[in-house]
Structure formats: C-alpha cells, structure tokens
Design a protein around this nucleic acid. Structure first.
Lengths: 160, 160
DNA sequence: ATTTCATGTAATATCATAAGTTACATGAAA
DNA sequence: TTTCATGTAACTTATGATATTACATGAAAT
C-alpha cells in the first residue's frame, strides 16, 4: 500500500517556515522535503487558500506563515489537505446486495470508524507550536536558524 | 488512496462457506465476491497454509472450513493475510536526519499506533460466528443455503 | 525597460501496488 | 481418459500519489 505522506511533509515544512525570519522559497522547502518545488507549491497553495500561509512572488519572495502556530492543530492541517483517507483497508462494495457482505461491512466499518476517531482526536490534541517545542528541546541551546538557503536537506537541523 | 479489500472479501466468502454443506469451488466463491477465481485461490491458499480452510481437487472438490468459526476472530484472519497495512498515511522518511522531521514523525506515529491498536482490539473482539449470527438475524426464518451453484452474485442472500 | 527570481498551474510522466487475467501443470473423480 | 477442480507463475490492467516539464504571471533589482 502506497501511503499518502502529504500531511507528514507539510507539517515538516511548516515547522521550518516557523524558524525562518523571512519568506522561504518553494525551492528551499523542496530541498528540505527532498522533493520537487512544484509539489511544495501544490500543497501550500491549498493551505494559502485557507489562510494558513501567504506567498509572495519575485525577488525576496516565498512562503510565510499567516497564523500563530499555537492556534493550529494537526487536525486543522489534516482538514486543510481535504481530509485524506486514513484507513488503508476498505470494503469491496460500499452498498452490497448480499446480506452476508452487509454484515461484514457493518462490523468492519465500526472498527474503522473507531480507529479514525482515535486518530483524529489525537490530531486535535497537538498544536504545531508543541511540535516546534519538541524540536527545540532536542537542539543545543541558543541554536538559531542561520541560513535559509542551506544546500543539503534541512541544513543545520540534520543530525549527521 | 487505493484500499486493500482482501480482508473484507475473504470474510465474506468464509461466511458463505460456513453456510454451505459441502465444498464450495473458487469459481462459485469468485461469483459471490464478484472477482476472478484465481484471486480467490490466491487469498485462500494463504489461509489453507495456516489451517483455516482445506481444499480438494477434482470432481466434488472445492474449499471447506477447517475450524469452528466460534474460535476464529477478525484479528486471526487479518494476521493470516500477513497483516496488511491499516493506516493510509505515512511519513516521508522513516528515519530522517532532520530533527524537525523526527519530531513530526514521532507525533504522527504515536497517533497512528493508537488508532491501529483500537482497530486491532476491535478485530480481536469479533468472531466469525458472531458475524454469521448477525446475518441469520436479518434473514427470514428457516432460510437455508439451497444451491451452492447460484449464478448471480450471492444468490438467495441478495437483497434484490 | 529588461533581466532575474519567484509563484501559479495545467499537462504529462513515473512509480508502486492491488486486482484481474491468461496459461498451463497437478491431481482426483466420473 | 475425460472432466473438473485446485496450484501457481507470469503477465496485464487500473488507480492514485508523486514527480516533472513547460510556460504564464507578477515583483524586485539593475
């Protein structure tokens, strides 16, 4: 099963944006995410329409956060991505005629719904500011984001 | 996201097998599942190796249950299918160097694990016999499986 | 002005994988 | 010895996330 990693990816770059002191280009973000700049723009353009980030064209342009991360939860970003599928399993037919299959679907859907509810509840509990704080606790003191144009991956936040 | 429907499908045909009084061919089962006989054999051959079903070749052959369904839970079948992926989302990199990405992964993995645990707990709670009983309660009394060679879908269990 | 840099977005290609199909071998019963 | 059924490898198809290409738009630097 090929997993959708957009949520993981977008959280990653939002946190990097929060540490930058100016706009960050899709090009720089794409290197952090190890992907293509167009992929970054595609994902962030959705968030822009919903007020989480703003973008600027031209020299000195790029992406900036538009909201205080203390007010943004994982669930908010999940919803902003248009609620990607959570469960990798499904029923063969959503509205089968067969009574046996109906019974199977009912039992499985119940389990799926319970699992989804737990996951979304977790997402609601965590703000991006809390994630950012988790990162700070793992960094040496007074460590600041020095160069937003790092060449390799995430630059000084790399563990190597 | 493309969902894996093997578990749903195999539960469906196991319940049909429990209602038959003799072996059921992959051909008949594939019609119930609306798929190809080879797909049925592929899935059931895994269950055969683990003792849930037995198969017989030649005239009068087919598939039979090898265990009392009161002793088989959804979790047993899930495991027998080699534990297919449950969560449709994933991290972009499982062991990133970037500390920011590590923090994101940790938070998301926690949520994923909690959701999976809930789903598997549900699966452990439900036996196939209970599903079978659910079906019986939705059928007219004294309704028996008359013809294992039904042409259309699930035959008399169709709701149409 | 015009060059440079950056986003905006459509169109297309790539890749992974569940599912479906074909082909043929094996073995049991009629 | 024919028919029926499983066993399985090999191949094809379908789908959706991801990646890439190409070009338009707009803003700042020169």
């Amino acid at each position: 099963m090929k997993r959708d990693s957009r949520l993981s990816g977008v959280l990653h770059i939002l946190l990097h944006m929060s540490r930058a002191d100016g706009p960050v280009t899709s090009d720089a973000l794409s290197r952090m995410m190890q992907t293509n700049p167009v992929v970054v723009r595609r994902i962030l353009s959705g968030l822009r329409k919903q007020g989480f980030v703003v973008s600027e064209k031209g020299h000195g342009g790029g992406w900036r956060l538009a909201r205080d991360l203390r007010t943004v939860t994982l669930h908010d970003i999940y919803v902003a991505l248009d609620r990607p599928a959570i469960i990798a399993m499904g029923n063969r037919s959503e509205s089968p005629d067969c009574l046996v299959e109906q019974a199977v679907n009912t039992a499985m859907d119940q389990a799926f719904q319970d699992a989804e509810a737990v996951l979304l509840a977790r997402f609601r509990e965590v703000t991006l500011a809390e994630l950012s704080e988790d990162v700070r606790q793992h960094l040496p003191d007074h460590h600041l984001y020095r160069d937003k144009e790092q060449i390799h991956g995430c630059g000084e936040y790399d563990d190597v």
